[in-house]
Simulated assay, not measured.
Amino acid sequence: MTLRDFALMVVVCLIWASSNVVSKYVVSHLGVPPLFFAGVRFVLVALATAPWLMPAPKPLWRILAVGVLMGAGNFALLFIGLKTATPSSAAIVSQIGAPLTAVMSFLMLGETMNRRRIFGVSLTALGVILVMWDPRGFHASMGLLFVLAAAFLGSLGAVMMKQMDGVKPLQFQAWVGFSSAVPLLIASALFEPGAIEPAAAAGWRFAAAVGFSAIVVSVAAHTAYYGLIQRYEANLVSPLTLMTPLFTIGMGVLFMHDPFGPRMALGTIVALAGVLIVALRFNQLVSLVLAMRPRAQ
């Protein structure tokens, strides 16, 4: 990977990490209801990517299902979870998505699930449990259960997306926005009466946050990431996304004063190690370890 593309990957991960912190600020500190926030976000995504909506991918029902799972369902549950969960813990729990995708690909698509991947999935699950577990009682981590459910829906959508060919990144974003905006706004009207008032009271802060989430995160960063995936092997690019939870933890501690004790640190290390084992083959893991080894001067 060229230095320029690696720098682009770092910027993408920084943007994704910032999104977690910004979303927490919107739903928790500004008090904007999560379904309304997600709905407005996808309205903007749909408008920004409308020129790429047609021609519709086939089968139509599958792209709609994928859009709802990876858009409305995933983000609605994530934002609900962020009302009570910290960005740092949510970022680590979300890492269960990669192992879940591997397991569902095995169950739904018949892909290989060898002992290495089983070990990686188990390790990631253990790390996530360490992060979610609270000595004072599991009820304190209810927000992370929503984050866990969001990761499940996102993984299911990703596996269903594997069964479609020829859908380009901006077209995919267009259909995610189109299929998610209306259901989210209807759900917000039903379950979040008066949702407009706190958004209006937040004024420019809400406008800036939702614009950043829709245009910079969903359209720009995701499109850049898909471009990197097209230029390089997925096994090279995917592990680099682990910078996102690390950046999120740093931003969460710095800006949101997230607690980060020994249990959280251990869970983070275990979970990310499991994701690496799932994402990389053995020889790639050895190469990565050797590359990280200090060299004599």
Rank of each mutant, 00 (worst) to 15 (best):
G127P: 01
G110H: 09
L153C: 13
L170K: 15
L285M: 11
H139R: 14
H257K: 14
A149S: 12
Q163C: 07
P169L: 00
G39I: 08
L64Y: 08
K162H: 11
F152E: 01
A76K: 12
P135G: 10
G31F: 09
P294L: 02
L100F: 01
R205W: 03
D5H: 15
V22A: 14
L126V: 10
A220G: 00
A76W: 12
R293E: 04
E233T: 05
V128H: 08
V93T: 10
I96E: 03
P262W: 14
V275Y: 02
Y232V: 08
N74H: 15
A56P: 09
Q171E: 04
A76P: 04
V237T: 06
I249R: 14
V216N: 05
M164K: 12
V93C: 05
G73A: 07
E111H: 14
P99R: 12
Q284H: 12
T2Y: 09
P135M: 10
F255H: 09
A202T: 09
A207W: 07
S122N: 00
G120L: 01
T49K: 10
T101C: 04
V45G: 02
G252A: 13
P57N: 07
M1C: 11
T244G: 11
Q95P: 00
Y226T: 12
V237L: 07
I277L: 11
A214D: 05
T268R: 13
H222T: 04
A271M: 02
